[in-house]
């Protein structure tokens, strides 16, 4: 039975400063929330083991600085990404409007092999704030944008209360896995290096 050798899934979280990227990551991985996370400088990542069917994967979640000025660093951090998470704050129109910039910037810098089908997931965060009264971006508006960009999956989350975080990352992991699949090289379960190279040599000579 063939299985993939692949075990690492790389996910990049992007979005304006202060929309809750670090909080979402920490809520998902550590089940914790703090309102004292410092502004991210440079980049960092957390990892979490996830299981799909009977296979284990390491989800590597990259948290980056939210200020546009640091975007030139992206080249180093975005490469090899399997999924990109775009986060905005439902209480900030600007952060929603910037989603398009973040998406385009990501596609330019990460230059995935198939940009049309590269998996994004959009999270509208901070739905808990002020009981939803300070909300300025409606769910409908967000979903419309997601639909227009090739049916990007959309979740409304609260990193503070943990709302929908697990579900969102399940989806993110699944999409990351799918994205890899197209380019996946299938290898036999166990590889006998000597045997397979012999085989290959034989094949070439034929």
């Amino acid at each position: 039975m063939p299985s993939r050798r692949r075990t690492l899934l790389k996910v990049i979280i992007l979005g304006d400063s202060g929309v809750g990227k670090t909080s979402l990551m920490n809520q998902y991985v550590n089940k914790k929330f703090s309102n004292q996370y410092k502004a991210t400088i440079g980049a960092d990542f957390l990892t979490k083991e996830v299981q799909f069917e009977d296979r284990l994967f390491t989800l590597q979640i990259w948290d980056t600085a939210g200020q546009e000025r640091f975007q030139s660093l992206g080249v180093a951090f975005y490469r090899g990404a399997d999924c990109c998470v775009l986060v905005y704050d439902v209480n900030s129109m600007k952060s929603f409007e910037n989603l398009n910039n973040w998406r385009e910037e990501f596609l330019i810098q990460a230059s995935p092999s198939d940009p049309e089908n590269f998996p994004f997931v959009v999270l509208g965060n901070k739905v808990d704030v002020d009981g939803g009264n300070s909300r300025v971006v409606s769910e409908k508006k967000a979903r419309a944008w997601c639909a227009s960009k090739g049916n990007i999956p959309y979740f409304e989350t609260s990193a503070k209360e943990g709302t929908n975080v697990e579900e969102a990352f399940q989806c993110i992991a699944k999409n990351a896995l799918k994205s890899g699949e197209e380019e996946e090289i299938y290898l036999p379960d166990t590889i006998d290096v000597a045997a397979s190279s012999q085989q290959r040599t034989g094949g070439c000579e034929c």
Binding site: N30, L46, E49
Partner: peptide, 10 residues
Amino acid sequence: KKTHDYPRIA
């Protein structure tokens, strides 16, 4: 120990 809340990377 100090960073126990971060799972060790694979």
